[in-house]
């Protein structure tokens, strides 16, 4: 037995096996977004379905500018009527949007590669939506946010920077936890 050769062989083989085993624990589709920590991309989109929240009642077509919302936590949710997980998360988003209506939080749904007609029908089918839905022709804003697919949701802090990105269907628990953490520490400093 040539032990030197065996040792070399083991030295080659073990890392490969280890690497593949490591790969088994990873999701290759889970790619972190570089956005968190950076200023949120500008959003200037037309509303096609107004929300029912009093502050945000607006006529269809009114543009929404993210940059105009200072000292507000903004939730940007990319969705589409053809997206199954969007159906799953929609009740949670609507419920939390209503619950946080009197807090400095604003929700926006940005339509991703879908027609406005389909989306309106879908919103009606889902029993309405308290926050406005915005049209994003050509997905330019989605690309600006580095969207891969739907649903994806971005949380923008009161400083106007992206705080985090969430991929997949949101739950009430996740939403509450994210919003509370974004609202809480900023409260004392928010007066500045």
């Amino acid at each position: 037995m040539n032990w030197k050769r065996a040792a070399i062989a083991a030295g080659v083989a073990l890392p490969i096996i280890g690497l593949l085993a490591f790969g088994m624990t990873r999701d290759p589709k889970d790619i972190p977004s570089p956005l968190p920590g950076n200023p949120a991309p500008s959003v200037e989109l037309a509303t096609f379905a107004p929300g029912d929240e009093p502050v945000l009642v607006r006529a269809a077509g009114t543009p929404v500018r993210l940059s105009a919302m200072r000292d507000t936590v903004v939730v940007v949710n990319f969705f589409a009527s053809w997206c199954m997980p969007c159906r799953v998360e929609h009740p949670a988003l609507s419920a939390i949007a209503r619950r946080y209506a009197d807090r400095p939080v604003r929700f926006f749904g940005v339509l991703y590669n879908d027609t406005e007609a389909n989306a309106r029908r879908w919103i009606d089918m889902m029993g309405g939506q308290p926050y406005p839905a915005l049209a994003d022709p050509g997905a330019r804003t989605a690309i600006d946010f580095g969207v891969y697919g739907v649903p994806e949701t971005f949380f923008v802090g009161r400083d106007g920077r992206v705080a985090s990105k969430f991929t997949g269907p949101l739950t009430e628990a996740v939403l509450t936890q994210k919003l509370d953490s974004l609202l809480a520490p900023a409260a004392p400093k928010g007066a500045e």
Binding site: A80, S81, W82, C83, N113, D114, N118
Partner: peptide, 9 residues
């Protein structure tokens, strides 16, 4: 991916 809308519409 896209044309899922197809099915819907």
């Amino acid at each position: 991916r896209v044309a899922a809308a197809v099915a819907a519409s």
